[in-house]
Every structure is written in structure tokens, then in C-alpha cells.
């Protein structure tokens, strides 16, 4: 299996299977959640649930000051690797080319140097996140194997992507193949771990926001 064939598999059948399992898994999970339904709220409310739901989807992105004060490092670090990961994914020109080729959507990207720097930042931030998870009593207590698996499959694409872009470790063909395979691993693992939160967080915030909006309480 030469590096070329390895890359061809990654860009070809590998991606097909990863996309299939990802879409299949996420859609299955969405149906599993929605199928359980929700009883309507008969109580006399003060506001509109819909507005509350939409508002919370946005406002819940920022932390409450009281909780932020207790764990500023963990929370800020959370923003760093989330924003870093998403910036590298959606603002790196070759990635934009991927979305453009597959979905016809295109948008301006960031200069490659900045993306490279963001990549490094994200890698260190994810490493810090692991360190925090291993040292904080609460996080250690809560974490299961799937948390660490989710962490690993999130770090690998950024790490291998950085190595590929900078032509390090393996020859570029092989390194690019490893990078694409690591992304496929993320796609395959995602629907079966907490990574479903990449979509379900909007649903969860919506439900709580809806109830708060209906009752007219802060959310």
C-alpha cells in the first residue's frame, strides 16, 4: 500500500464511509431524541417560548460570571480550542475549497500563516484540556472512556493537519492521508460519543430556553 494508494483510499472510499456513518449516526440520534416527544406546557406563561428558545441558543454561549470566576482557566481554554478548531476547519482555504467543491458554498478564508498559528494554539489548548480533565477532582470523577476517546479523535485531526501543512514527520502524501483518515475517524466516532453535542446542544438549549421563555424567567 503505497502512500499514494493510502491517500486515494482516504480521499475516496474512506471519506465515503466516514460521511455515511456520520450522517447515518447523527440522523439516527436526532430521530431517537425527537421520537420521545414532549408534552405541551399548559401553564399560563408570561412570554413566548419560541423567543426564549432562540435567545438561549445564543446567550448560553457565554458563561455566568459567578461560575466563570471559579474556573476561568478551564472556561477560557474551552473557548480557545473550540474557536481554534472551528476557525482552522472553516477558514483554511483548502478546507473552504472542500466545502465549495462539495456544497458550492464558498467564503473568504484567513491567511495560511494565521491558520497555522491557530492550529498550534488549538493543539496546546486541547492538551491543556486533557491535563485539566485529569487533575480536577470533578472532571476525573465524571470522565469515562468515551470522554477521552472524544478528546483523542478531536486532537488528532488538528495535530496531523499541522504536521501535514508543515511537511513534518512523514512525506506529505502519507501525512495528508493520515490527516484525512484522522478526520474520518472523528466523523465515524462522533455519533456514538458526547460529540453529538456539536448538534444536540442547540436542541438542548432550545428546550430549556423554550420553557424559560414561556415562564418569563431568565435563561
Amino acid at each position: 500500500m503505497t502512500a499514494d494508494a493510502f491517500l486515494s483510499f482516504a480521499r475516496g472510499t474512506g471519506f465515503d464511509w466516514a460521511l455515511t456513518i456520520f450522517v447515518f449516526g447523527m440522523l439516527l440520534r436526532l430521530f431517537e431524541v425527537l421520537s420521545l416527544g414532549r408534552k405541551p406546557d399548559l401553564s399560563e406563561g408570561r412570554g413566548s417560548g419560541v423567543q426564549g428558545g432562540l435567545k438561549t441558543i445564543v446567550t448560553r454561549t457565554l458563561p455566568r460570571a459567578a461560575v466563570f470566576a471559579r474556573e476561568p482557566v478551564r472556561i477560557i481554554n474551552g473557548y480557545v480550542f473550540h474557536i481554534g478548531f472551528l476557525a482552522v476547519l472553516f477558514l483554511y482555504e483548502p478546507h473552504i475549497e472542500l466545502f465549495d467543491a462539495k456544497m458550492g458554498l464558498s467564503w473568504p478564508g484567513l491567511p495560511t500563516g494565521i491558520i497555522n498559528a491557530l492550529g498550534v494554539l488549538t493543539i496546546f489548548s486541547l492538551l491543556l484540556a486533557l491535563a485539566l480533565r485529569l487533575t480536577s477532582p470533578v472532571l476525573k470523577f465524571l470522565s469515562t472512556g468515551s470522554d477521552y476517546l472524544a478528546w483523542l479523535v478531536t486532537l488528532l485531526p488538528v495535530l496531523t493537519g499541522y504536521l501535514a501543512y508543515n511537511h513534518m514527520l512523514l512525506p506529505y502524501t502519507a501525512m495528508l492521508a493520515v490527516h484525512i483518515l484522522s478526520v474520518e475517524l472523528l466523523m465515524v466516532v462522533a455519533p456514538f460519543t458526547k460529540l453529538t453535542h456539536m448538534f444536540s446542544f442547540m436542541l438542548a438549549r432550545w428546550y430549556q430556553g423554550y420553557r424559560a421563555g414561556h415562564r418569563g424567567v431568565e435563561s
Binding site: R29, E32, V33, L34, S35, L36, G37, R38, K39, P63, R64, A66, V67, R70, E71, R74, I75, G78, S136, P137, V138, L139, L142, S143, T144, D147, A150, K194, T196, H197, S200, F201, L203, A204, Y207, Q208
Partner: peptide, 29 residues
């Protein structure tokens, strides 16, 4: 168990922030 609860369990990332908001954890550790 209904749809909201299913969406909650699908979203929890074990980030521990709820512990920092709970007086029982904060005071007992």
C-alpha cells in the same frame, strides 16, 4: 424520559461547570 431529556444526555460533555454552580459541591468538595 422525553425528547428534552434525551437531548440533554446527548449534549452533556462532562465539563463540570454544573458542579461549580451547585452549593452542595462547592461547600463539600
Amino acid at each position: 424520559i422525553d425528547a428534552p431529556i434525551a437531548s440533554f444526555f446527548s449534549s452533556c460533555v462532562h465539563c463540570g461547570m454544573c458542579a461549580d454552580a451547585c452549593h452542595f459541591y462547592v461547600q463539600t468538595g
